[in-house]
Amino acid sequence: MGLIQEIQSLIYKEILLEWRQRYALNGMLLYIVSTVLICYMSFNLRGSAMNPPTWNTVYWIILLFTSVNAVAKSFMQERYGRFIYYYTLVSPQGIILSKIVYNSLLMLLLALVGYGFYSLMLSNPVQDHLLFLCSILLGAIGFSTTLTMVSGIASKAGNNSVLMAILSFPVIIPMLLMLMKVSKNAMDGLDRASSSDEILTLLAINAIVVSLSYVLFPYLWRS
């Protein structure tokens, strides 16, 4: 079985599993919706509207916490015995790449739903919508690539959610800062050429993280 075919069938399996036990997906959607609601209520309580930089920052922080929670379960959900079964069937590279792709899709869905609801509740000061959506796409992919590998590491250390957070936050900060900058440019409607540096760096970081996961995951898998 080729690697591509392997990844395809593994992604199909992930989606099927998610669809059969919908509580996890619904739980994540509810998580992001209720977080947005909390932000709406607490900012309204102050009696003043959010200024655009705060709007941007709060959105990305909500997204960061949602993604940590959503991706953390990617290795926790699986029962121990099932891993041994996979071990006999597929290559570790297939597993990690399929998880990355699947988590990216999941994060993209969550980020878009979150974005829609967030702009509904807290208005939408974005001027360049295409660039903002592009930053959301990059963010979803970037967060899920980094977090998938970290959740693999954390799952070996007893699925500790605190561990997941402390291991992933420092690694994800450069990405987060870059994303905030791109989306800030999109909000201000700046010329797109001014954010090309950040976008290229983000793509480069993503490439580094994916290739590292590809190389390192087999070692993690073996233990």
Binding site: V150, S213, S223
Partner: peptide, 18 residues
């Protein structure tokens, strides 16, 4: 040893661009 080695490599490589 194995898992912390993996994290060490992973984290250092993302620290460098930072």
């Amino acid at each position: 040893a194995r898992i912390s080695a993996i994290y060490n490599i992973f984290a250092f490589s993302t620290l460098v661009p930072l």
